[in-house]
């Protein structure tokens, strides 16, 4: 009967594979962080930040990420302040009660591109661009999904009506409201890396993985220590347990 259950589990897993929805499963890519102990490649994430600021940020927000946390990607405080200074943010009301703009600083969060949801919708034909802070966690197999999606723009098959959207085989329903955002050479990387489409996308996904999971590296580093400790403790407890119970038998 136990074998039955194992067979059932295998069976349900294979059924899962066949019950694929209309969207294609994302292509698997080996990112620096893909393996259980992998880390975020800081250079790649820095380039990804550049792609985000120069391309994505005009429509997408990153509201949960504070500029200060960019220090984790290897910038120093002055660099962080100069990155933040590219953005204008609402100041506190002044003495006359007016709200003026000021340059964003270290402690601010990424400035949102639109004042509110309705402005975002109107500017984008009714489909608001989602906030990207958590995008990688908010989709199944998120890193591969975002990468595949950004590389997955194609001409629709003949007879396929995309309406006001665009054809993308990785999107559920195959129609996406966002026009293809990256084509290659959209930015010029300061470290001399060639800005091919795939390079830009990989760097951006690395950056967005970090914004989704800023805890990733600490978590994995701490995890290794904790698991090792627990394994040793489990073995010691087991030996203690056997010793104590062996007294019972004699």
């Amino acid at each position: 009967m136990k074998n039955f259950i194992i067979i059932f589990l295998l069976f349900s897993y294979t059924l899962n594979l066949f019950s694929a929805e209309e969207a294609l499963k994302p292509e698997q890519y080996n990112f620096s962080f893909s393996k259980p102990l992998g880390k975020i490649n800081k250079n790649s994430a820095q380039r990804g930040l550049q792609v985000f600021i120069e391309v994505c940020a005009s429509c997408h927000g990153l509201k949960h990420v504070a500029y200060r946390s960019l220090e984790e990607l290897g910038y120093n405080k002055d660099q962080v302040n100069s990155i933040a200074a590219q953005f204008q943010i609402d100041d506190l009301p002044n003495e006359e009660g007016e709200i003026l703009k000021r340059k964003a600083i270290y402690s601010d969060y990424f400035v949102e591109p639109y004042k509110n949801l309705n402005e975002a919708k109107t500017a984008n034909n009714g489909a608001y661009p989602p906030d990207l802070s958590l995008m990688v966690k908010a989709r199944k197999d998120g890193a591969n999904y975002v990468r595949s999606l950004l590389l997955g723009y194609n001409e629709p098959p003949s007879g396929f009506d995309v309406g006001e959207g665009y054809y993308n085989k990785y999107m559920a329903g195959n129609v996406i409201a966002m026009p293809q955002p990256l084509y290659g050479d959209d930015v010029e990387f300061s470290d001399g890396t060639k800005a091919t489409l795939e390079q830009e996308v990989n760097d951006l996904v690395t950056f967005l993985t970090w914004t989704s999971m800023p805890d990733l590296e600490n978590r994995r580093a701490a995890g290794i220590k904790v698991i090792f400790f627990l394994l040793v403790m489990t073995i010691l407890f087991y030996i203690s347990y056997r010793k104590i119970w062996s007294e019972l038998k004699t």
């Binding site: 995890g223 290794i224 904790v226 489990t234 347990y241 104590i244 019972l248």
Partner: peptide
Amino acid sequence: PFYTIKDLFGLSFVLTIFFTVVFF
């Protein structure tokens, strides 16, 4: 001590699995 130690061993074992999920 018979079941306290056995429970502790079981706990330690399950915690190892639990924290593997939590951290990874």
